[in-house]
């Protein structure tokens, strides 16, 4: 079974967020980058678990410049067999999905896994676009996946219940919390990652379909008003006249 796991570089969640170029570009100065947690904790680890029980291989793919390589090495340290980096500054989701789909089609993967979203842009677009471009089924927000021969059984959470889906390979999925548990690399893995293959491929020509005009930070949180428990009238008044929520 050949697994392809999409790995994206994102800012650490504690990073201070601001923008440059007229608020149209994220300011990377001084930011610590990590592997997108949905890609790492759920998609990659589940692919590794299935490879360990069924055999096969796990390849990671990243669309990004050479500065993405530290996070790619981490994915290799966690246990991926080899990695591919498409050497391009990623534009919009379509550009990234197009690069991944072209590579996946050419190399006949059985399962392509992404995280349900990246924690920076939160677009949740890559999985669906890759599936469409490959002409395969797409299962989004999967919380569980098992494989029996070429048939996969997946679960996804719904409001008030669980949906169970069966699908034949090849297919694309996006992984949500519950799919697997975080794996911390061990020293053996870190050492092995030094020599695992990291192939750099030039991008196929593709134009962005969208462009970022500008970003805005959310408004500052306003101050909390404390209302005495005995003074319900004032609370109702504030909720009605000031917050205008009742």
């Amino acid at each position: 079974m050949k697994f392809l796991v999409c790995i994206s570089k994102v800012p650490d969640t504690t990073s201070k967020i601001d923008f440059t170029d007229n608020n149209s570009k994220f300011n990377e100065a001084g930011v610590q980058f990590i592997v997108n947690p949905y890609d790492e904790w759920y998609a990659l680890v589940r692919a590794l678990e299935l490879k360990e029980s069924l055999g096969g291989s796990v390849t990671t793919i990243t669309v990004g410049p050479a500065t993405d390589e530290p996070i790619i090495r981490k994915a290799l340290a966690i246990g991926a067999d080899n990695a591919v980096r498409i050497n391009a500054e990623p534009g919009d989701a379509y550009f990234t999905a197009h690069q991944i789909a072209e590579y996946a089609k050419a190399n006949a993967f059985d399962v392509v896994l992404t995280g349900k979203e990246t924690i920076n842009y939160n677009g949740s677009q890559i999985g669906g676009m890759v599936a469409e471009l490959m002409g395969t089924p797409y299962i989004s927000l999967a919380t569980k996946m098992d494989l029996n021969g070429n048939t996969a059984t997946l679960e996804k959470e719904m409001v008030g219940g669980v949906e169970i889906v069966e699908v034949n390979t090849p297919f694309v999925l996006s992984a949500a919390k519950g799919m697997a548990e975080q794996r911390i690399p061990n020293m053996r893995g870190i050492m092995a990652a030094r020599t695992k293959p990291l192939e750099v491929i030039e991008p196929v020509p593709c134009d962005d379909l969208t462009s970022f005009v500008s970003f805005e930070l959310p408004p500052e949180k306003s101050e909390v008003k404390l209302v005495d428990a005995d003074n319900i009238g004032e609370l109702v008044n504030l909720l009605h006249n000031e917050a205008k929520v009742i």
Partner: peptide
């Protein structure tokens, strides 16, 4: 080096967990 940082961050993640 990138490997230094990976080693340090791994130790930190393991300690925190």
């Amino acid at each position: 080096s990138d490997e230094h940082k990976l080693i340090r961050d791994t130790a930190r993640a393991w300690v925190k967990q």
